[in-house]
């Protein structure tokens, strides 16, 4: 791994995508997507439904294999980074089965599974990690509650705690601010700043522009490809946003890049 010298503080790239293309049975979901995100940054991933945000997430998690291009996480192949527990995905609350008979504690403990032995028997250090994570999201008192009894915001915090317990260095968050209450939003904003200080990198997929403006250092605008990326203040221009949201459709590179209706979630 070579660090370029003009990179001022010699920071590690948490995420590197180089000309990544993903297609599903001939339908292009993403083409020529390139970006680099350094450690300790909060990066917003902005685009319409079907613009390729979830595809990009899936590529970062190794669920889809790019047909072309390279993705590296912490300078490693995605599968290597995964086995080092580097990537955590924080789902939208609606994505998980909330009637599943499981407690907050057990959900957060699932963040530790990757570091446990085959039988997934928690050690003292795992229990401490879970306790600590629950403290940080302020859910210690609710730890033995079934997740079905929680509010949307509390559920969101549970999954954040799981990512903390996992000690992931790259956190992928899907619409983290949708359906959360004001206290949770505040707590999450504080947490994100702490994560940045801990040199973690947070990638937030959203179409809520006001939150991006408030929280994100970096922005990636995507519509089937990376339209622009960089510091929020520079990238958030009117033309760029027009281009992202239904302004000019991008040049189709392969076949039917014009079909934008589907969201691969």
């Amino acid at each position: 791994m070579v660090f370029s010298n003009n990179q001022k503080e010699n920071k590690l790239f948490r995420i590197e995508a180089d000309q990544v293309c993903v297609d599903y049975n001939g339908t292009v979901a993403l083409y020529d997507a390139s970006l680099k995100v350094v450690e300790g940054s909060i990066c917003g991933l902005v685009g319409m439904n079907g613009a390729g945000k979830s595809t990009f997430f899936k590529a970062l998690m190794g669920f889809v294999r790019p047909s072309r291009g390279i993705i590296k996480i912490n300078g490693l192949q995605v599968s290597k980074a995964q086995s080092q527990q580097a990537v955590a995905y924080v789902p939208q609350s609606e994505e998980v089965d909330c009637s599943f008979p499981i407690s907050v504690w057990d959900v957060v403990m699932m963040g530790r599974y990757g570091s446990m032995n085959l039988f997934r028997i928690p050690r003292e250090s795992d229990r401490r990690a879970v306790w600590h994570a629950l403290e940080r999201v302020d859910l210690i008192d609710l730890r033995s509650k079934p997740i079905g009894t929680l509010s949307g915001g509390q559920r969101k915090r549970t999954f954040l705690a799981r990512a903390i317990a996992q000690r992931a260095s790259v956190l992928l968050l899907d619409e983290p601010f949708s359906g959360v209450d004001v206290p949770t939003e505040k707590l999450m904003a504080d947490l994100f700043l702490q994560f940045r200080q801990e040199n973690r990198t947070i990638l937030i997929s959203t179409h809520d522009l006001s939150h991006v403006r408030d929280f994100c250092d970096l922005v990636v605008l995507i519509n089937k490809t990376v339209l622009a990326y960089g510091e929020t203040s520079k990238v958030f221009t009117k033309e760029n946003l027009n281009m992202t949201f239904g302004g000019l459709p991008p040049e189709p590179l392969f076949g039917s890049a014009s079909s934008q209706q589907e969201d691969f979630s």
Binding site: M61, S83, Q85, F100, V107, M110, G111, R120
Partner: peptide, 22 residues
């Protein structure tokens, strides 16, 4: 019994299971 927890995780949240390399 051996795969109790992995199977539970698989039923509950397969996305997380995959993302941690299971």
């Amino acid at each position: 019994l051996v795969f109790r927890k992995d199977l539970m995780l698989y039923c509950f949240d397969p996305t997380h299971a995959r993302s941690i390399g299971i």
